[in-house]
Amino acid sequence: MADQQELTVRDKKELVTKEEKTVPARYYVPNTDIYETPDALTLVMEIPGVEKKDISVELENDRLRVEARIDFSKYEGIEPVYTEYNVGHYARAFTLSNKIDKENISAQVEDGVLTLTLSKVKEAQPRRITIS
């Protein structure tokens, strides 16, 4: 069972983009699971430390872009003495196929995990063809 295995640590992957960033902060690629059910495609993204108000999900043409910003004011007044991971914003973009109903995308966030549910268009959903 998956629950029985020991968790291992993986280094955060820094975002590499062709576009230049205007802020001197680091961006990381959030760990993402993508799974498909008969009526929807679901993206599950880990963005620990980001509040709901600091998440932006934008859809432009076929590109779904997620940006999540860390509120670093929480780190004010404390001094790092030992560290194992770096803190930064998160960004990731996905290209959607035309099977996704772009008017019907919903998002929830819980415990630092963002779930995007992308409904499929009617034509892309499996259906049974009756034989006449």
Binding site: A2, D3, Q5, L7, T32, D33, I34, Y35, P38, T42
Partner: peptide, 23 residues
């Protein structure tokens, strides 16, 4: 603690980056 990652029964995975397990 325990970290669990759950999907519904009829889901097919396209990408799996999140880990689950005990720590």
């Amino acid at each position: 603690g325990t970290k669990s990652v759950n999907y519904s029964e009829d889901a097919s995975l396209h990408r799996r980056e999140r880990l689950a397990g005990r720590f």
